[in-house]
């Protein structure tokens, strides 16, 4: 089968083999075209992130548990955050409770970096440390961040934190240190090895399944299908930033 050849051509280590076996098995039960599209995502370590992909997230507030903060806990563990919630502590993701002032309807939802297509933080950064990767993930390059905090002034979603204290014992995959600005990375280290962001994984594990992560450019992806079939909201849509994170049920 041509799919099989394709898969073998990209073989790279046990984990990938494992994934591909899984893919091949799944593929046997599906139309071949669907699988091929999926494989096109997979990226060898030496390949750069591609503009053919745009990572996005769809959050269904109806499924999001009121009082559940598993996504926050998972994020803190993955990124080595303290989990403290003082005014100077870093939070990549937070549970936001909102109440409609007209009818009193309440929603609970996770708020994180919205990974805008036109991110204000990237526009305002004097050194170019705030950046958007080709696949739409907005990151801070701590190597050239000078800690001016202008991006925090510019972000409409209050998604960024400043590391106020020296940090030790980081997760080797998530470097972070004093004096730089930081925010949600969609767990880029996990996405690059084709895993889900920690928050999404946690939300799936506890059965809420309120967070859907995937490629917005792929019309076949679950997130694209869901966005196509149901209405969704972009936070501060008036700013025209075309966010990568969308909400349902508000």
């Amino acid at each position: 089968m041509s799919e099989q050849n394709n898969l073998e051509g990209r073989a790279d280590g046990d984990r990938r083999e494992f994934l591909k076996t899984g893919a091949a098995i799944t593929g046997a039960a599906l139309a071949p075209g669907v699988l091929l599209y999926g494989v096109a995502h997979s990226r060898a370590p030496e390949q750069p992130a591609s503009a053919e992909v745009r990572w996005g997230m769809l959050i269904d507030t109806a499924k999001c548990g009121d009082g559940c903060s598993d996504c926050v806990t998972a994020c803190n563990t993955e990124n080595g955050l303290s989990g403290k919630t003082g005014p100077q502590d870093t939070q990549y993701i937070r549970k936001l409770d909102i109440k409609d002032l007209r009818n009193g309807r309440v929603h609970s939802l996770p708020m994180l970096c919205q990974h805008c297509e036109h991110p204000p933080c990237v526009d305002v950064c004097p050194t170019g440390a705030s950046m958007k990767r080709a696949d739409g993930i907005v990151l801070v390059d701590r190597h050239i961040c000078i800690g001016c905090r202008y991006c925090m002034m510019a972000c409409p979603y209050k998604a960024r934190s400043f590391a106020h204290e020296p940090i030790t014992d980081q997760n080797p995959e998530v470097p972070r240190g004093k004096g730089c600005v930081e925010s949600c990375t969609f767990c880029v280290q996990r996405v690059d090895r084709e895993e889900l962001p920690a928050c999404v994984e946690a939300c799936e594990a506890n059965g809420h399944q309120a967070m859907l992560f995937g490629d917005l450019m792929d019309p076949q992806s679950a997130i694209s299908q869901a966005l196509k079939s149901q209405p969704s909201t972009e936070v501060r849509a008036d700013l025209g930033l075309n966010t990568g994170v969308r909400y349902q049920g508000i």
């Binding site: 893919a23 669907v34 999926g38 996405v191 889900l196 490629d215 076949q220 992806s221 694209s224 299908q225």
Partner: peptide, 14 residues
């Protein structure tokens, strides 16, 4: 295996 967004996408999409 189902942790891969690409696979999850394929399965759900199909």
């Amino acid at each position: 295996p189902d942790a891969s967004p690409l696979l999850a996408a394929t399965v759900n999409g199909a």
